[in-house]
Design a protein around this nucleic acid. Structure first.
Lengths: 161, 161
DNA sequence: CAAGATTGAATAGTCAATCTTT
DNA sequence: AAAGATTGACTATTCAATCTTG
């Protein structure tokens, strides 16, 4: 039975699932402690902060945080209710909406950032090393790019991956 | 604002989230097509098939598939209802339960395996290469090991990572 | 009373259908 | 009629509480 079970591809895939769950869980707990913020919220805030104008279209943001558009709508609902982001209708295309970082959101982000970076240093860099971090990032980027969702092409907004 | 936002540690973490979602989604869709089986079911079956006796304690299995014990209880409920695994009480400690692969489960696994491996070859190996796959696996293993959940130590059952 | 597993209540996510604008 | 976003119905997961056995 076991012949194909130890296939390196299957092992790699299983490891991706385990590693993701382990570190997302651990970093999430760190973040809750530090700033009382779910890791999904942080991902939204940081993606916005990285973008010129501190704003991103809903679809684009959905792709970046790896959620369906409906999942993102609900996540944005929650973060907006907390006052950390706001919605703005796109002036040039009134079907579209932007999620925009508020001042409170910028502050919240700045507040948790040091603890978060320290958490990542400990949980990520200590595990794989400086050099490993670079390798790992490139591999993961290749995997992401090779497996983007069919629908989520969306090429507007300047590409700040 | 943007200074710390492009920190390589933050980028790496974000990439892990995106890559995981992208490939888990894609492979999951492939698997549904091929064998009509959710990827979570496959993860359960393969972990059992890799173990001597084709059985694993509930807690141990929970750790391996990256679920809480209650999450695993429910997943096992579903897979058991489909007849692919069965529960057995542990003879030496009647608090504990084993999840055991059934013949039907072994068959189902064998049936989807070729398509699954082909899917991984395309989506994983084509993206990072043969050599990359090995590097990636080791990095992920390091991350997993460095961030195991506090409660999920559980040292019984022979260790077939 | 601690450990292993399960259950209840609550949360977050998905897919399919809908609404608005192009 | 297609694109962007939202909503409704449903599924899967978690945390906290419970039950059983050691």
């Amino acid at each position: 039975v076991s012949s194909t079970c130890d296939d390196p591809r299957i092992t790699a895939f299983g490891m991706l699932i385990e590693a993701h769950a382990a570190i997302a869980g651990a970093v999430g707990r760190d973040l809750e402690e530090a700033g009382g913020m779910p890791v999904a919220w942080f991902e939204v805030l940081i993606r916005l902060a990285r973008t010129p104008g501190d704003r991103l279209r809903m679809s684009e943001l959905a792709g970046q945080v790896a959620l369906s558009t409906s999942g993102l709508t609900r996540l944005v609902d929650r973060v907006e209710a907390a006052g950390l982001i706001a919605r703005e209708t796109c002036p040039s295309d009134r079907r579209g909406a932007y999620a925009v970082l508020t001042d409170a959101g910028r502050d919240a982000l700045a507040k948790v950032m040091p603890a978060h970076v320290e958490s990542l240093e400990r949980r990520l860099v200590d595990a794989v090393g400086q050099e490993g971090l670079v390798q790992l990032t490139e591999h993961l980027r290749a995997i992401r790019d090779a497996n983007r969702r069919p629908g989520v092409t969306f090429a507007s907004c300047p590409g700040v991956d």
